[in-house]
Write a protein that binds this DNA or RNA. Structure first.
Length: 341
DNA sequence: TCTGGGGTCCTAGGACCC
DNA sequence: TCTGGGGTCCTAGGACCC
């Protein structure tokens, strides 16, 4: 028996949940995002595969999606429905007997001992489908990084294996942003250093990169490019470090008295959520996105960690007082950071 | 036609202390 | 009367992910 990591990723999860409860939408372009009105500010959470064929994708402004695919069905985000479906999926995964680490609504890592990981993966797909009607792709790897990267190559509804044996054959020639944790900005910085591909980054000097990109980031990037990852899959329950609420206004706010009123409403919601967790908050951070799109944050450390709503609201106001009030506000956010553990 | 909302982790720079 | 060097904590910003 060998230890394997499986990465399970639900296919077009949010759109698939919507189609499940509205079967007449099957096969149609479906776009979920914002409050479902594509004339408003908001972005696409998930597009169904038929919608993706029109060039609609996650993160795209809803207005752009509506222009690319006017015949799409636009639906509002229904968090509770997705959380409920997600809980069913995770329960089905745990029923497989594997150690399960939840990565998000629609993703999990499984650690399992088996001589036939592909057969285990097929079994997991069957369990998820039987329990929820949803399809998923499974990446099989000799560590979590390789399992995660395998999944993209098995979409949709497939199983794909990626290990040290074929790492460079599969990944070596790809640009560095194919790695999990390297985005457009880091890929550009690496390119400027002459490192365009995964293979080139894998052969780079870790100390040299540490000097240029930071003591932890540099060596980590080289290990990433080599496919190395010894982080174990953990079933330990998730403990959030922070909890926040933010809102983009449909119309920019230029009246700062109105900004303060909105802030207090957000702070009250955050305080409510903090009280619900029964874990004291140590600090409150306020985020302001000015028009057109400049974002600033300021924080206020509370006198002592607390779950008291009045103290959290007061902390938010104290942080807001650190902002310059010379521009209109597009987005306002409040985040509470929990005391240590 | 501008660019959501939920998070996490790392870095750099300043303050402060010995 | 010239001001080293190291460690640690705090804060704001950046990058990334789903």
């Amino acid at each position: 028996m060998t230890g394997w990591v499986l990465h399970v990723d639900l296919d077009q999860f949010v759109a698939a949940v919507e189609v499940l409860r509205r079967p007449e939408l099957a096969g149609r372009p479906v776009v979920v995002g914002g409050d479902g009105d594509p004339t408003k500010r908001g972005v696409v959470s998930t597009a169904s595969y038929p919608a993706r064929a029109y060039g609609v994708h996650s993160g795209q402004p809803l207005r752009v999606a509506a222009r690319k695919c006017p015949e799409a069905v636009f639906l509002p985000v229904d968090r509770e429905a997705y959380e409920a479906a997600s809980a069913q999926v995770m329960a089905a995964l745990r029923d497989s007997g594997a150690t399960v680490e939840v990565l998000g609504w629609d993703e999990a890592l499984l650690a399992v001992d088996t001589d036939d990981p592909e057969a285990f993966a097929r079994d997991v797909q069957r369990r998820v489908h039987d329990a929820t009607g949803l399809a998923c792709t499974v990446g099989v790897g000799d560590n979590r990084l390789r399992a995660k990267l395998a999944t993209e190559r098995g979409k949709p509804a497939g199983v794909f294996r990626l290990t040290a044996a074929d790492w460079y054959a599969v990944m070596g020639a790809l640009p560095t942003d194919a790695l999990w944790g390297v985005g457009a900005k880091t890929a550009r910085r690496l390119r400027e250093l002459g490192l365009s591909t995964v293979a080139e980054l894998a052969a780079a000097d870790a100390q040299d990169l540490a000097a240029r990109l930071g003591p932890a980031t540099g060596p980590w990037l080289v290990r990433l490019a080599r496919g190395e990852d010894d982080t174990p899959v953990s079933a330990a329950p998730y403990l959030a470090r922070s909890l926040g609420k933010e809102v983009t206004f449909q119309t920019d706010l230029d009246d700062w008295d109105a900004v303060r009123r909105e802030l207090l409403a957000l702070a009250a919601q955050v305080a409510d959520a903090v009280a619900g967790q029964d874990r004291p908050a140590a600090r409150v951070v306020v985020k302001v996105r000015y028009v057109p799109f400049t974002t600033r944050t300021h924080g206020h450390t509370l006198g002592e960690p607390t779950t008291d709503p009045a103290a959290i609201e007061h902390g938010a106001l104290a942080a807001l007082a650190l902002f310059s009030e010379d521009r209109a506000v597009r987005l306002l956010g409040v985040r509470a950071e929990f005391a240590d553990p």
